[in-house]
């Protein structure tokens, strides 16, 4: 159940590392690369992604198909999904002393729900069960860059990614730019209020990754590897 003070440190032996950013910002690639590196260095790593729980994935798919979802139900279903995933995938490894790497966290909900018109204070409250991470990396790129990457990879822009449900524009590309622009403004706001580590993600993958590793060095210095955990008993 929700913690009394969500801003307090979670107090578990593990560490919570969060990767946030727009679609096409490269955050998933960066999270994966970081996971590999941490594992190779002997840390116990647990990796988790947004929207992968079986429970409401079906509801969300069905609701999207039928166009039944409103900003409020959209928000609550994602919160349900995240609460379930938090209980099953994030909390146990965090308590067991893992480095938990999250490709998106509650902040993704904060920006999306705010962009859809939900009351930001309300959204914060419903996510009160999610403790503050030890580190949030925000991979910042202009919307135009994400669109270029998207078009280059010939990935189709999805209906909700483009925020088409908001009726911003009939053109998918234009709606995408406007909706993603809103998300970016929300991310920028959160970056200040929640002290994100902002990473310029317009640079090559390697440069971004080495910056992430550099930022984590102090945190890792104090954190035991798997082997040491066992020996220290």
């Amino acid at each position: 159940m929700p913690a009394e003070d969500p801003s307090a440190h979670h107090g578990f032996p593990g560490r919570l590392l969060v990767f946030e950013g727009l679609d096409g910002s490269g955050k998933s690639t960066q999270a994966r690369l970081l996971g590999k590196w941490l594992q190779a260095r002997g840390y116990r790593v647990f990796f988790t992604e947004w929207n992968s729980s079986e429970l409401v994935a079906g509801v969300i798919r069905r609701g999207k198909k039928k166009g039944l979802l409103t900003p409020t139900t959209f928000s609550l279903l994602h919160a349900t999904d995240f609460a379930d995933r938090f209980d099953r995938q994030i909390l146990p490894p965090l308590r067991a002393g893992y480095l938990v790497v999250c490709d998106r966290y509650a902040y993704t909900a904060f920006v999306r729900d705010a962009a859809r018109g939900c009351d930001p204070a309300w959204v914060r409250t419903i996510y009160a069960f999610a403790p503050r991470p030890d580190r949030v990396f925000y991979f910042r790129v202009p919307v135009a860059v994400t669109l270029r990457r998207k078009l280059a990879s010939r990935l189709k822009i999805s209906y909700y990614e483009a925020g088409m449900d908001l009726g911003l524009s009939d053109s998918v590309t234009e709606s995408y730019e406007r909706f993603q622009g809103r998300l970016m403004r929300e991310y920028d706001r959160l970056a200040r209020s929640d002290k994100f580590t902002v990473v310029d993600a317009t640079r090559p993958v390697e440069a971004v990754q080495s910056e992430v590793r550099r930022h984590l060095a102090p945190l890792l210095e104090r954190f035991p590897t798997g082997e040491r955990l066992i020996h220290d008993g």
């Binding site: 409401v56 139900t73 349900t80 609460a83 209980d87 419903i126 069960f129």
Partner: peptide, 21 residues
Amino acid sequence: TLGATTMALLYAADFADQLEN
């Protein structure tokens, strides 16, 4: 199998759906 928070949120989603639709 669902945790208490998850269940509470799922009920809230269900309620919101009925309220709005």
